[in-house]
Amino acid sequence: MAPSHGDSALASGSRRMLLTSLETRSTVYVGGKGGVGKTTVSSGIAHALAARGRRVLVASTDPAHSLGHLWRVSVGDSPVLLAQPQGGELHGVELDPQATLERHLAAVRATMDRMLPERMHKAAREHLDLAAQAPGSHESAMLERIASVTELTGTEFDTVVFDTAPTGHTLRLLSLPERLTGWTERLLANRDKSERYQAAMSSLVTGRHRDEPESELRQMLHRRRQRFAAMHTDITDGSAGFVAVTVAERLPLAEHAELVAELDVLGIDLAGVVVNRRAPSESGALLKARSALEEAALADQPPAAPGTPLVSLPLMAEDLTGAEQIARIGSMLTG
């Protein structure tokens, strides 16, 4: 059970670094390749933070939710209390974008009904349903949901820990605010131009033109831009940190390296790296051989740059579900 670094003083130093790094964040994203143990690590981190007296929410954004399975309780789209360690609180939620999408559709429908003549309602609604099924719509709804959960920090919770979907999905999702800010700005620029032409046209004869009140359309675009910009700030201003989870094998380590590089491009802080399920070197020939392979892979592909907290979790024989086990993982990560 000793960390495979073989140097337990160094390892405990890293764990304290990880804890320090996480304690300053209001949001923590936990991500990595599918199946590396993101849900376990995120709940462990959340528990460790709660154990220091904080109110913590662990939120699963992976459509294939496993938070409930991990805690062996039923978790849904609204937070439920999972544990209350040492005066802190740990809540869990499995985000369901479908509900968000439907609320959004309902709002758009209401606007349509208000703005369009009666005879067009049916056609417009059918068209709307089609748009709702567009591939990006589900993703955007998840983004909205993440943003609304993020807004809970500082009021209901001190920290939100996101248990994210596998790497590709998560990176796309995190890059959305920036891309959508650009998208909204282009549309606004387009509206600006169109309205400038309109103003010049209406003033051709009289030289006077009324400053039209900002149209509903532009108000909406303005609100959107502010929201996207705020989301972008939320994930890049240092209040958010990303914990990348991997296992010490060559393929996952390669994907991990890409994730780290991409986070840097997106301007998201890498708060720490967790190498999960390290094989112990002293438990039989098979595991010893694996341990040596892992050491070699880690030496070839170092998962974290110097200075980034790097914590290893050993391969364990127990079934890691339930509150007790999660508490144990939490202290192994940070203690």
């Binding site: 400038r196 103003a199 010049a200 003033s203 051709l204 004869v205 009289t206 030289g207 006077r208 033109h209």
Partner: peptide, 11 residues
């Protein structure tokens, strides 16, 4: 004058 300043065209 017409596009930016929105002055009337005839004068």
């Amino acid at each position: 004058a017409v596009y930016k300043l929105k002055w009337p065209l005839v004068p």
